[in-house]
Amino acid sequence: MLLIRCPYCEEERPEVEFSYAGEAHIARPADPSQLNDEQWAEYLFIRTNARGIHYERWCHRHGCARYFNAVRDTVTDKLQMTYKAGEPKPDAIGPSGGDK
């Protein structure tokens, strides 16, 4: 069970308090009606499925209930950092699979 730092509570808490919420930095188009079918399908369905560094969303469901972003290495399953929703995409620390 992972330990996850909630950037709002500023505390490291066990994974059971959180729920996963999919890939991060995929903004909903401001006016979906302007997108053609292909572009809308891209927004709706297509995800990175990264092997290595992955930007993703979590929700501190059983804590402050806030959604936030995290950088996780999908190879080692290590969370490198977490940050608040709306903050810019940070650089990942080191190469994939690296030890912290």
Binding site: S19, R28, R57, C59, R61, A65, R66, Y67, A85
Partner: peptide, 13 residues
């Protein structure tokens, strides 16, 4: 509720 919170917090803050 989770879906509403998600949209409110991250799409329409």
């Amino acid at each position: 509720l989770a879906m509403m919170e998600d949209f409110l917090q991250t799409e329409w803050p």
